[in-house]
Amino acid sequence: MTEADPRSNTHNRKPGAPSRRAGLLAALVAVQAVCAVFFVVDVTADFTWDGADVHTAFEAVIAVALVLGVIFGALEIRRTLDRIRRAETALSIASGALAEVIEAYFDRWGLTAAEANVALLAIKGFEVAEIAGLRGASASTVRVQLAKVYAKAGVTSRTQLLSVFIEDLMGEDLIGK
């Protein structure tokens, strides 16, 4: 019921239906949470004033079921949202937003302007010597900057750096489970 249909995301530009489903699910879980709270408080009060009897025990079972329902509901919403976000990331790349995604990753890694420039040229396939020529810097400077980029990105090679972005392009289905 909560599995977002990936097709509705790749065919429409806006995240429409799955997003609305997540919103509806959130509202339902919120209502369920109110019921759960009411029963938990009611059971606690009954138990305090009247002690344990069949009625209280039955209410306690309902309270536990509602609380579990809220927890599983929240987990389901999380899964739906994750799916939507993956689809959106894939879509924005497919729509020619790769440059922006790369920039956002650079931002996340905290690259300096020079490092970001070197990294971009490296991703585009330029050799160290070529990058040095383009930037008017020495090859050893570029090599140091590239090493810093790899360290910040948590990768060890240019191929791995590239695969960070390729991974988003391929999506989970191609990587396979």
Partner: peptide, 9 residues
């Protein structure tokens, strides 16, 4: 840093 969606800042 290597997985999950990137949020344009």
């Amino acid at each position: 840093t290597l997985s999950g969606p990137v949020i344009p800042p």
